[in-house]
Every structure is written in structure tokens, then in C-alpha cells.
Simulated scan of single mutants.
Amino acid sequence: MSNVTRLRHALPMGQDITKALGELDSTIAKAVDAAKGAGLPQGLIVGLLHGHAHAQTQQMVMQ
């Protein structure tokens, strides 16, 4: 896991990281709002987000 950076050790974060985090957060929020608007059950949305988070964590650990 040598490619993992603890954000608290990288503070202050660069503008590029701050911008990317803001864009990621905004995009996720818009996608969740769209899914809710389309009538997807909230539990399904949460489950999908949790699954993606788990998969990304697995990739990070295995690298």
C-alpha cells in the first residue's frame, strides 16, 4: 500500500487535489439525486455506493 497517501499528512492539500475532491463530491451528489429522482430505492443507492467503495478499497490494498 505504498501508493496510499494519508490526507492529514499531505495538508495543506494542493489546489488540484482540492478541485478534484470537490468535483468528485459534486458528481456523486448529482448522481444520487438523479437516482432518487428516477425512483430507485434509497437502500439500493446506498448498497451500490458501498459496493463501489469496497471494490476500490480492495484494489488499493492489493496494489
Rank of each mutant, 00 (worst) to 15 (best):
M1L: 09
M1V: 03
M1K: 08
M1Y: 06
S2I: 01
S2T: 07
N3F: 12
T5R: 15
T5P: 02
T5H: 14
R6Q: 14
L7A: 13
L7C: 05
L7M: 13
R8Q: 12
H9S: 12
H9M: 07
H9Q: 13
H9Y: 06
H9A: 10
A10P: 08
A10Y: 05
L11P: 06
L11V: 12
P12A: 08
M13L: 15
G14C: 09
G14S: 12
G14Y: 03
Q15A: 14
Q15L: 15
D16S: 15
D16Y: 08
D16I: 02
I17F: 10
I17R: 10
T18W: 06
K19Q: 12
A20G: 04
A20W: 09
A20N: 12
L21G: 12
L21I: 06
L21P: 03
L21N: 08
L21C: 14
G22I: 03
E23G: 00
E23D: 13
E23I: 08
L24E: 13
D25G: 06
D25L: 11
S26Q: 12
T27M: 14
T27C: 05
T27W: 00
T27I: 01
T27F: 04
I28F: 01
I28P: 00
I28E: 09
A29V: 00
A29F: 03
A29D: 11
K30W: 02
A31F: 10
V32W: 00
V32Y: 02
V32C: 01
D33N: 07
D33Y: 01
D33T: 07
A34K: 15
A34F: 05
K36F: 00
K36E: 04
G37K: 09
G37L: 01
G37V: 01
A38S: 15
G39N: 01
G39Q: 01
L40F: 10
L40T: 12
L40G: 02
L40S: 12
L40M: 12
Q42I: 11
Q42H: 13
Q42K: 11
G43L: 09
L44F: 06
L44P: 00
L44Y: 04
V46P: 09
G47F: 00
L48H: 07
L48F: 06
L49E: 05
L49R: 02
H50Y: 11
H50K: 08
H52N: 15
H52A: 13
A53E: 14
H54V: 00
Q56R: 13
T57K: 12
T57V: 11
T57W: 03
Q58D: 07
Q58L: 05
Q58A: 02
M60P: 00
M60A: 15
M60Y: 07
M60F: 08
V61K: 08
V61N: 05
M62Y: 11
Q63G: 15
Q63V: 13
